[in-house]
Simulated scan of single mutants.
Amino acid sequence: MAAERVAVVTGGSRGIGRAVAAKLGSQGYAVVVGYTAQQARAEEAVAEVVAAGGQAVAVQADVADERAVAAMFETAEAEFGGVDVVVNAAGRMYLAPVAELDLDLVDAMHRTNIRGTLVVSREAARRVRPGGAIVNFSTTQVVLQFPTYGAYAASKGAVEAMTLSLARDLRGRDVTANTVAPGATATDMFLDGKSDELVERLSKQAPLERLGQPEDVAEVVAFLASPAGHWVNGQVVRANGGLG
């Protein structure tokens, strides 16, 4: 069934991606919820989109696999009539001091965070309709550069480095490209392995003195995806409560 506005959201089964999918659903979007492995959580995200007022379908796709990504976009076109917004929230985080890096884990992270961003952006650049938007994800750690974050920040720095170039590649298409760089956000990926004491300390670093919530970031993404945010283009938006 054709929909007025259609979004593809990778990493849509959890964390920020799931909040983005639900937010767009509340605005009447049809949403393709991309996920890698957790089908049950993806189906829960679909139910949230539908409950919020949108349409949704879950599609399994490794963002670094160009064939799987193309098939995900083809599903969006077949089910809903096209693609207007692409939000690439899929990502990996591996933390270790540089001297102790497991290079296999670094390669896996960079495959998702760098190659995956390029694969999704390539497909989006080919298919997003006029008036649409592409939103990729970085991290405020690109500028904060805490210990152990070097490899992760490097992978997201690559995403920031391509943002304006992608926007300029889309000249004449009436499609924007931006990157959202959250700070500390209460997701499973951020909280995993951190003590309550560390989480409490990190939550006080922003002037607003709390962790971000996935819904905080989803609001920013929804603005960039909307006609109201269409004049913002080629930018890195640091949605971090004032961390830096």
Rank of each mutant, 00 (worst) to 15 (best):
R201N: 11
L95G: 01
E123V: 14
I16G: 05
V232P: 01
V98K: 00
R173W: 00
L211H: 04
P227K: 08
A186E: 14
V119R: 01
D192P: 00
V119C: 11
A206M: 07
F223W: 12
H230K: 14
V135D: 04
G150V: 05
A21P: 06
T179Y: 07
S13Q: 11
D104M: 06
F146S: 09
R115S: 10
L198Y: 14
G12T: 12
T179S: 13
G82V: 13
V232I: 15
P97H: 00
A177N: 01
V46C: 12
A181E: 08
V57F: 00
V175G: 10
V106H: 02
G34W: 03
R115M: 08
M93S: 13
V232G: 05
T185H: 01
G157V: 04
P130F: 11
L170S: 08
E48K: 13
V57H: 02
D65C: 11
A76P: 02
P147K: 02
A70V: 12
K23A: 15
V217L: 14
V83R: 02
F80P: 06
A30Y: 10
D84E: 08
S155F: 03
S26T: 10
G11W: 05
L202S: 02
A228E: 14
D104L: 13
L166E: 01
A99G: 14
A40D: 15
A30F: 08
V236H: 02
G53S: 07
L211G: 07
A42S: 09
V6M: 11
D65W: 05
A151V: 00
Q60A: 14
L103R: 02
F190I: 11
V50Y: 03
P130G: 04
G212A: 13
G212D: 07
V217Q: 06
G131K: 12
T185K: 03
R201K: 13
S165K: 10
K204P: 01
T36A: 15
L202W: 00
V9G: 11
A51F: 07
T117L: 08
G193W: 07
K194V: 03
S165I: 11
L95H: 01
A125H: 03
A78K: 13
L164P: 00
E44D: 12
